[in-house]
Amino acid sequence: MTQLPLLEQAILVLAALTLLASFSMLAQSRLTSAIHSFAWQGVMVAAATALVAAVGHAHHLYLSALLTFSLKGLLIPWMLHRLVRRLNMEREVENIAHPALVVLAGALLVILAYWIALPIERLELASTRNIIAISLAIVLLGLWLMIARRQVVTQVLGFMSMENGLFLAAVASTRGMPLVVELGIAFDVLVAAVLFGVFFFHIHESIESLDTGKLTRLTEEEPA
């Protein structure tokens, strides 16, 4: 048995905590708490990136860690929080159908991701290759969050956390993408967040709620 150096162990711990943040988003019924979980996930991904930079002496990764921290840890959560406050939904609690089943299905997705990533693990690309399974699980959990929830804000969080998972996979397995690509993706996400905000207002204006379940109704009356 070979021992990984302590810094690489810390990367593994951070990857596991990122996964935990995904699960806490999945289980949170309060909007503001879910946004906080998303912010923590961004911070964790940024910290993992910084550690990868320190281990691999890849200096451009420090920049992308900083970018991730400021965008996904601070700016986007702040924007979402402000939107929620403006729409007076701070105390909104989403009614999740079968919360325990949703979370258990999430655990099944993690196992699926592990099973899919097994062949990649055998390639022995880098010592942190196991993180690919975790990243894939985070992507799948983001997808599952968008499917299982009806609240638009939570669906947006699912979308954003998918991006977190992809970023983690890129950083952990290949020591990061070229900086141009990373900058492009970062600003894409930022623009997406702004656009989502505009959509929030439009949806809220037309159906006076952000519950997508109500979008399928054809008439204004409540179903009998």
């Binding site: 162990q9 990857a15 935990l20 325990a100 655990a107 592990y114 693990e121 010592s127 196991n130």
Partner: peptide, 26 residues
Amino acid sequence: APQFLNLAFLLTLLGLLSNVILESGL
């Protein structure tokens, strides 16, 4: 209380999974 214990179960399940997935090199 079931929700609280569900959280405990989820945490330990994640522990088991991360043991399998992440710690093959440890």
